[in-house]
């Protein structure tokens, strides 16, 4: 009860504390959101160490630029954007967004895997996403998980809208193929 009382610093207080560079507020915000943001980072790269690097970079950017949060929407949504951008920046720096999959490797579209998908755990789905090529994985995350449109994805990644659509289609087909192996 004591810890609940003590830690009843609400999100607004945390944000205000972070704006004042209060290290305790920053730590509390980190404790609150680090696991969720680590999940975001894990979806964009295929190894844990790289995900940790992106996580650290994301929080440094977050605390450094917290003043730019104008409270126009939920803080978590704004925070998520910071981490997505950190992941994309890493991928651009590593120049691995241009990885492509040849048409030969792209499987044909299969029937619905609805029942199979519902039985798979989140960790299993994450593993499948991590196995995708970087470019497909990025577009898939941005479209299917984060909810960006192909137009927005094109602007973010510097590709055309049609390229974004085709990459997403390829990503989906690869995932279906992967799921098919489980059956």
């Amino acid at each position: 009860m004591c810890s609940n009382v003590i830690r009843r610093m609400n999100e607004q207080q945390l944000i205000d504390g972070c704006k004042r560079n209060d290290r305790l507020a920053q730590k509390e915000l980190y404790d609150k959101y680090s696991r969720k943001m680590m999940g975001v980072c894990m979806r964009y790269v295929n190894d844990r160490e790289t995900a940790r690097d992106i996580l650290q970079e994301g929080f440094v950017k977050l605390f450094t630029n917290v003043d730019s949060y104008l409270q126009e929407g939920p803080f978590e949504a704004w925070m998520r954007k910071v981490f997505v951008n950190s992941a994309l920046e890493y991928l651009r720096k590593m120049d691995i967004l241009k990885e492509a999959v040849s048409l030969d490797q792209a499987p044909e579209a299969s029937s619905s895997f609805h029942s199979v998908l519902t039985e798979l755990s989140a960790q299993e789905l994450l593993t499948m996403v991590q196995e995708l090529p970087a470019g497909f994985r990025t577009v898939f995350n941005l479209f299917a998980i984060e909810g960006y449109s192909h137009k927005e994805i094109g602007e973010m990644l510097g590709i055309t809208e049609s390229t974004s659509r085709s990459q997403y289609t390829r990503a989906r087909q690869l995932l279906q193929k992967r799921i098919g192996k489980i059956l």
């Binding site: 560079n21 290290r23 680590m38 995900a51 996580l55 994450l126 299917a144």
Partner: peptide, 30 residues
């Protein structure tokens, strides 16, 4: 739609473990 919905439902709020060294690294950089 269901394909995306299922992936989104299970992965959007997925949480993963961090390491104690992560906060220390962040604090040092800050």
């Amino acid at each position: 739609d269901s394909f995306e919905h299922l992936f989104r439902t299970k992965l959007k709020n997925l949480e993963a473990d961090t390491s104690p060294e992560d906060w220390e690294a962040i604090a040092t950089r800050l």
